[in-house]
């Protein structure tokens, strides 16, 4: 088994085919989309491949150490930041092929007009613990 992170971006991913902001969909289209996401996660729970899913607020803060005895420096959010993560799903699957297959299904979630969004999702393998048997 190998764990993969499916990353969804607010910004930074190539534009999807069906690129209409959500507040321009009909309420029914929004409901259909939300339902698709719920069903997808529920199906992975049943198949024993679901680990975690979380959404992130669009705006955060940059923070860094500013030396002994000083409070950390905070800044941002920076408008020019290219990459902005919207949320993730972690899956635990048997193969890279399976991970790609699931990411493809998630990207088919319906959007405006009930058509698949074709949203680009970033698929990243976890760096796992070393295996016990190495030779």
């Amino acid at each position: 088994m190998a764990k993969y992170l499916l990353l969804k971006h607010y910004r930074g991913a190539p534009a999807p085919a069906n690129d209409v902001p959500m507040d321009r969909w009909t309420p029914q289209e929004i409901s259909a989309h939300v339902q698709y996401m719920h069903d997808f996660a529920a199906r992975l729970e049943k198949s024993g491949e679901f680990v975690d899913a979380q959404g992130l607020a669009p705006e955060g803060t940059w923070v860094r150490y500013d030396g002994e005895g000083r409070p950390p420096v905070t800044d941002g959010p920076f408008a020019e930041t290219k990459d902005l993560i919207a949320g993730w799903m972690v899956i635990d699957v048997d193969s890279h092929e399976r991970a790609v297959e699931l990411a493809g299904e998630l990207s088919a979630a319906p959007g405006a007009g009930g058509e698949p969004i074709h949203e680009w999702l970033e698929l990243r393998p976890f760096l796992a613990a070393p295996p016990t048997i190495t030779d």
């Binding site: 959500m22 507040d23 309420p27 289209e29």
Partner: peptide, 26 residues
């Protein structure tokens, strides 16, 4: 509504506010 959705503190509220914006835009 769309702006409020952007700042919503949880997913259920964000979806709700997005739906409100979508309803009015329609």
């Amino acid at each position: 509504y769309a702006e409020a959705a952007h700042h919503a503190p949880d997913l259920a509220e964000r979806d709700h506010l997005t739906r409100q914006a979508a309803r009015l835009n329609a």
